[in-house]
Design a protein around this nucleic acid. Structure first.
Lengths: 334, 334
DNA sequence: TGGTGTTGTCGAAGCGCTTCGACAACGGGG
DNA sequence: CCCCGTTGTCGAAGCGCTTCGACAACACCA
């Protein structure tokens, strides 16, 4: 089943079929319809390899997904699904590249013209893949923001604003003594962009609002100790910001056992809405929006429009029952 | 950078370079080395599209991953990573296909010759994709086992044996009254192979050993009720089998609050080792082994060797502190 | 020494598509 | 009525690789 079969069936030349398919030249309504009918009748599908050879476009993008222990897998998966779905709406498929091959994987898919562009997830402040991308002249979009963004296209949630939004929310409710329960220490050690930026925004906002604000790395199995430590050392603590999805449940359990339950202890989380009832005040991590935006930007770069730049999506804080005015303080004005 | 550039650089013909690369004809040691050096010197990489056009092989396989709410994402991800890594060792890349497109996605990648084969995850007893695969003459391997396996190649953990192994383990320890906490009801309703088969194995073994054995679908947010129900209705219950990874933690918490903690209540889980301390007696879900086996089988089919068949991986039960002899009963003999 | 295999290399013919230039056919303005 | 600009279609030339048949070159046995 080749394009020439379709052409024969429709009584036109192969190039005409090609132009009907690509729309790159005007074709009369009559011819277009006849060709379309032949395509349907024969169930024709162009050969991807032949197409990519002739057009120098593979209509495939690569997605580099992280494998690290400390990334929250369901979140990574949401990105991947969003990217894949969006790519399809732009007539592209997605090639999965795991971290395993490292920068060489990028070189490989770029060098063999397998992909038209690449989306890189889980970018660190000083990421080994960034120089490779710079050297490769392969259109790319990063999900995450490295330290030096010169010449790069990045998308992410504005984590600094997310951290700040939580502080402002709690401060508006009258809280003056809060704590930030963050990612596992390893995440900060490798200087993952989103974690750093959240902390930066948190600390800046806390300074601005004059609230006492401390920082506590955490993982699901240290959640209990973190909670115990806070209850012990911070009797005046009334607000908590959690930026660590898998630790939310154990943390809340631990606090509950220690006699502190939301909203007496106001808790706001940054991340995908935890499936807990009742829901928590949270800043959602809009994986779908980030993923489709990344694809959109990549398609633009592939088409040669739009240059580098950093796109930070505005966070949206959704108040729920887990935060409340500080006991004995004035209710919020707005 | 084309193959002819390499040929020129090495002083041979393009076909010779091709044969060096593919090894499909014998090439003298001298020539081979010279060509290799030219390839390295020029950093040559073959154009994937041209290659797939000429050789009718894309060196890409498709992986269909599930998106359903009730699939445990981290487990799915382990499969995906294992498949991708294994595929690379066979010089193949992986194209991500989400469930979103359904069977049409399969038709598309097959029709356009984008992939040499496909691995399908999360297969249901009566899966809509199976007839499509049968009609497509595209090499395929299923991870999971549908009802009618005629003509299909399937790999999976032997879930029936896993369910049985847990029963035998508990029965060996003297337990005579046990319960099986399973997947959410929806998983059974859509007749997911692995869930059904586990239950089958469980019930058969229980009958064989003459232990009282009941069945309880469960999800993380109903874990509490399930535990309460069991404690209320089954005072003689001493053994528990949990086949529902995300519910393990809430379930154990709930039982603890009701005064029943392992190993007084013996608990065995089927699934990836939960990151709890101390570890639980468990039958691991060997995602890596299943994934790489699936790739191996697919490569064989692509190469035209090896026909259909069902491969079930033997489960391995790892005893740990969460199971113990029934109080007052004899210790196990072996 | 002539026939008969091997072994190693080459040239050329595609693989199925896109795209460029060419060119009928037609309509509208002078 | 002629010329020119559009519009729609075609033919042919690749895109970069694989692979098949051909064939030197050489070794080996008779």
């Amino acid at each position: 089943m080749r394009i020439s079969d379709v052409a024969k069936h429709a009584g036109v030349s192969p190039s005409t079929v090609s132009y009907v398919l690509s729309g790159k030249r005007s074709i009369s309504e009559t011819t277009r319809r006849r060709v379309r009918e032949s395509i349907d009748a024969l169930g024709y599908q162009p050969h991807a390899g032949a197409r990519s050879l002739a057009s120098r476009r593979s209509n495939v993008i690569a997605l580099v997904i992280p494998l690290r222990e400390d990334v929250h897998v369901p979140v990574a998966m949401r990105f991947a699904v969003s990217v894949t779905t969006s790519a399809r709406t732009h007539d592209h498929d997605v090639l999965l590249l795991t971290q395993g091959e490292g920068p060489d994987g990028l070189r490989r898919v770029a060098g063999s013209a397998m992909v038209d562009g690449v989306i890189v997830m889980d970018v660190e402040a000083d990421d080994a893949r960034v120089p490779v991308l710079r050297s490769l002249d392969l259109p790319s979009v990063l999900i995450g923001v490295p330290e030096d963004v010169e010449g790069l296209t990045c998308v992410d949630l504005d984590f600094a604003a997310a951290g700040a939004a939580c502080v402002h929310h709690l401060a508006d409710l009258g809280h003056t003594d809060i704590a930030f329960v963050g990612q596992p220490p390893s995440v900060y050690e490798r200087r993952t962009g989103f974690a750093e930026r959240t902390v930066t925004g948190y600390e800046a906002a806390a300074r601005e609002r004059g609230v006492r604000a401390t920082l506590h790395p955490c993982s699901p199995d240290t959640a209990r100790e973190v909670a115990a430590g806070l209850v012990r050392d911070r009797p005046a603590l009334t607000g908590l910001i959690v930026h660590n999805e898998p630790s939310v449940a154990p943390l809340l359990d631990a606090f509950q056992e220690l006699g502190r339950t939301p909203p007496e202890l106001s808790v706001a989380v940054i991340g995908p809405p935890a499936p807990v009832v009742p829901p928590l005040t949270s800043v959602d991590l809009p994986a779908e929006a980030v993923g489709s935006r990344a694809v959109q930007l990549l398609m633009d770069k592939i088409d040669g429009v739009g240059g580098p730049g950093v796109t930070l999506l505005e966070p949206r804080l959704t108040p729920a029952g887990s935060t409340a005015p500080r006991t004995g303080s004035t209710a919020p004005r707005s």
